[in-house]
Design a protein around this nucleic acid. Structure first.
Lengths: 341, 341
DNA sequence: TTGTACGCGTTATCAC
DNA sequence: GTGATAACGCGTACAA
């Protein structure tokens, strides 16, 4: 259990520690034979350099922190795979933390990562965060003091950092238009928490599509729903109780769409016969559920890759950078749930 | 960007670094006023102790490594939540790594964690691992040299470490018996990779249930399938092509069951009318898919908690421990897919 | 109660 | 080509 140190190896070989160190970092002059001997002996003794000593010296950890609200749904894990793909190759390690959708946990996570001296943080905010100016201020402060941070998916304009987002406006527009082309006119939108910028963008896209096709726009078409299956269920049930039913629904994401579908099916409604549904943020579920769910696909892996690349760039740039907002494109996967029969 | 050190604070207050240090670790005598002053000034200056310096001193990282084959499906994320629940409270941090089902990546991950001096590792093996004696040997060596390791879900008997597993035999038995009670006799089992011990246990449970009910047992009832949706699809398609259809299928997990269901539905078969299906390892999907899938539920959160507790125990025990195998219990959630109409 | 000095394991900068 | 030694930031005996 006791760790072998460079000194142990030096003692064994009757040479100085600096020679050993040189053998391991072969940028210095050292005789081939001694080098090979040292490496062989070190391996035999099970020596490996203590990373903390190195860290203490270098003052950078080669670790990147990732903070996500949750990773139960497939969206964030997929993004993380993209991040990992880029950072692993660059020799960085990932510290993944989840905030459980709580701003307080998020702040704790950020501080923990800071304490661990990560070289940068990639973060998607909880939807409480925009209420909690504390978190925003804290992040803003970090960014302004030069700490590399990249936001993705759930971002805040108040933070002057690189951002990777999806073109929510455009694809909400297209998705709505798709429903209109199918012949639906009375369309509701189950929106995300309005504290999230993407919720607002999707609402705008939804409205503008209606306007383009001369369909009257009203706040009564928007139902602030949430991002989980249970949220979709709750709101759909409310609509049924109120006998306030649309011809079609544009949901803010797949889980809320699926929640709505569950309630509708349970109550004997046909999809899309009675009510058509479109989801968002393509998930594994969309093509498995019955009927298969039309949904806007986000390039999750690419989002992760892009965020990671931006972060590396910023780390390399040593403080001089102009916050950039990368807007990625998607795809509408049309399936049965939104067809006009 | 430059980090504030203990020296900066000392200089500012005209006192020695040890006084500052004492203020932060209040086990020493120190005057209340000075302590408060120091803490206040430190906070104002944005000082926080350099973790690496501490680490170098203490020789333990307060970090735990978690290695999982993947975290796209909900099983592992849920387990990780359980692990996090216990370890966070105990003041540990999690380093989560995924092996992408590749033994070579797994080995790299383990070495990286070792290099990072994690205090322990919780791991679920890839299914390549049992071919790769290299990984097994490496882990075995670590355990024998006293390094705290806990295996879960995908374990290897060759490694003398704590293990947290599910009672696969028992629940495969019950699930099979459930199908038999529904009146099905010709039952196939879509098994997992035979390199995984749980696959073998589920096969045994399956066989023994058949035997108990005097149904002839044969290797022809087992189809080594895999753990992904595409695996279920592939094997089901093969059965259709071969016109070799059972009355019911016990699948090794939900994704493979769902893959089979997709193919059956696509080809006009009714579930459970034509073929009944039971899944395993309850996932979100099971109750969302149509028809809802009967499935064996594993206590994912509890698996994580248990693994974490065992690890903490072992870390505390300083090397003296008897490898323990904790077998957790589950539940059969009966839904429409396995009913006899 | 506070200050001084050493060590944790490395790397880098000197000498030799 | 190799050895001695000063950092890196912190905790802690020991001295004061």
């Amino acid at each position: 259990m006791k760790h072998i140190t460079i000194k142990d190896v030096a003692k064994r070989l009757n040479c100085s520690v600096s020679t050993i160190s040189r053998a391991f970092n072969d940028k210095y002059d050292i005789r081939k034979e001694t080098r090979d001997l040292i490496l062989a002996t070190a391996r035999e003794m099970g020596y490996s350099p203590n990373p903390f000593a190195k860290l203490l010296l270098k003052q950078c950890s080669n670790q990147i922190g990732v903070v996500v609200p949750e990773f139960i749904n497939s969206f964030f894990p997929e993004v993380i795979k993209g991040i990992q793909d880029v950072l692993q190759k660059a020799g960085y390690q990932l510290l993944i933390m989840q905030s459980n959708e709580e701003a307080s946990v998020e702040l704790e996570n950020i501080k923990t990562l800071e304490n661990n001296m990560v070289d940068g943080i990639i973060i998607s905010l909880t939807f409480e965060t925009n209420f909690e100016t504390k978190n925003i201020d804290y992040l803003k402060n970090m960014v302004e003091s030069g700490f590399p941070i990249v936001l993705f998916n759930r971002v805040s304009d108040a933070i002057p950092a690189h951002k990777v987002v999806f073109d929510d406006y455009k694809w909400a527009f297209f998705a709505t238009e798709h429903l209109i082309y199918q012949g639906y006119k009375k369309i509701f939108h189950f929106s995300g928490p309005k504290t999230l910028s993407f919720s607002q963008n999707r609402i705008n896209g939804f409205f503008d599509a209606l306007k383009k096709h001369k369909i009257p726009v009203s706040e009564n078409l928007i139902f602030e729903t949430g991002l989980m299956i249970k949220d979709g269920q709750r709101v759909m049930q409310k609509l049924l109780d109120d006998k306030n039913l649309p011809e079609a629904i544009l949901a803010v994401n797949d889980p809320s769409a699926i929640g709505a579908m569950k309630i509708l099916k349970r109550n004997g409604y046909k999809i899309p016969g009675d009510i058509a549904i479109v989801g968002f943020t393509e998930s594994k579920l969309a093509e498995l559920i019955d009927p298969p769910l039309t949904s806007v696909a986000q390039p999750t892996f690419e989002i992760g890759q892009t965020a990671a690349k931006l972060l590396l760039e910023q780390i390399g740039s040593k403080g001089i950078f102009v916050p950039q907002k990368v807007v990625l494109n998607g795809r509408l996967n049309v399936r049965e749930s939104s067809m006009k029969l």
